[in-house]
Simulated scan of single mutants.
Amino acid sequence: MSETIRVFAGDCTTTFDGARDCARTHRGRVAVVVKPDRTVLVHDADGYQPVAWLTRPDSLTVETDSGGFGLVARADDQTLRVVANESSGWVEYPVTEAGVPVGSHPETGEPLVRAGGAVVGLDSDARFPLPAGATVLDDTCDECGLPTIRAEAGDAFELCLDRSCASLDDAVRERFDRAWTCPDCGSDLRIIRRGGRLLAGCDAYPDCETAFSIPAGVVVDECACGLPVFETARGRRCLDGICDRFAG
């Protein structure tokens, strides 16, 4: 869901006070930007850097009336005050995360962008988390029409962006469940999700608590310890990230 950004403009007196800085006061016709995370930026006509700012304050108070506007932002021992001597006005606009375009939503038609670790919709609360290292492809899912992704977790899988349509966990489980043996007790390793992580965990749990996070990479070899070796973006590694028998 989009949030909002607020912009105030006018002849303002801006005062910043902090324990490590003496109080600074400016007056001029400025634009004050209040971001969704409450960061306040005061811009004048000179250069790109704000006259004053306070990043993610602990508290923010904004007052508006027919006579103008005023705001106070506080973070620890820092206080930023902006008071309009003469108001030019204020507006509020919807904003979203900005990212790389990856297509459109098949149901709503809204643009989809990749922003950080997810694909998000620009006009709704649509959000699709991405597996680590995943690539969004140009193709679309035959079932729902959303973009497809390529994700590596022992093998390379091409799946729907929507986990409820095609689950990476299910794909990895079908390919690797019971494929490896626990080095501590000899039981099968099962593909499970625990604590938000995809794991190869011992089937004898809780008697044996051995479990390994499955890295973003593909299996290319077998380690001297018997576990698989993965080719990852950082090079080759044993499934056991601290294996003392892995030759590299």
Rank of each mutant, 00 (worst) to 15 (best):
E174L: 03
C185P: 12
C182W: 05
E174S: 08
R194C: 05
A200E: 04
L189F: 12
V172H: 03
R197S: 08
T181W: 00
D184N: 11
D203N: 15
I191H: 10
D169Q: 12
R173N: 06
R193Q: 13
A179K: 06
L168A: 04
R173W: 04
L189Y: 14
S164L: 06
P183M: 07
S187E: 15
R163L: 01
D177H: 14
D177K: 05
D169S: 03
R197Y: 09
C182D: 12
D184K: 08
G201S: 14
D188K: 04
V172M: 03
R178V: 00
R193I: 11
S164N: 15
L189M: 13
D170A: 10
A179M: 05
A179V: 01
D177M: 04
E174Q: 09
D203G: 11
C202R: 06
E174H: 06
S164W: 09
D188V: 01
F176S: 08
I192T: 15
L189Q: 14
R175E: 15
G186V: 05
T181C: 01
D162H: 06
D203H: 15
D170I: 00
G195K: 10
L168Y: 08
A200S: 12
S167T: 01
S187V: 02
C202E: 12
E174K: 07
A204S: 13
S167Q: 04
L198F: 07
S187N: 14
F176Q: 09
S187W: 05
A204F: 00
G201A: 14
G195H: 12
C182Q: 08
W180P: 00
F176E: 08
D170N: 02
L199Y: 09
R194W: 09
R175W: 12
R163D: 10
C165S: 06
L189D: 15
R178C: 01
L189I: 10
S187C: 12
E174I: 00
A204D: 13
R175D: 12
A179D: 13
L168N: 06
V172C: 00
I192C: 08
C182T: 03
E174V: 01
S187L: 00
L198Q: 12
R194A: 11
D184T: 09
L198C: 04
A179L: 03
I191Y: 11
R193D: 13
S164M: 09
D169C: 02
G201E: 10
F176R: 02
F176K: 04
F176P: 03
R197Q: 12
I192R: 15
D177N: 15
I192H: 11
G201W: 03
S187Q: 15
R175I: 04
R194E: 11
V172D: 01
C185G: 13
E174T: 07
G195Y: 12
G186Q: 11
D188T: 04
G196T: 07
I192L: 13
C182R: 04
C182K: 05
D184S: 14
R175M: 09
G195N: 13
R163W: 02
A200L: 04
R163M: 00
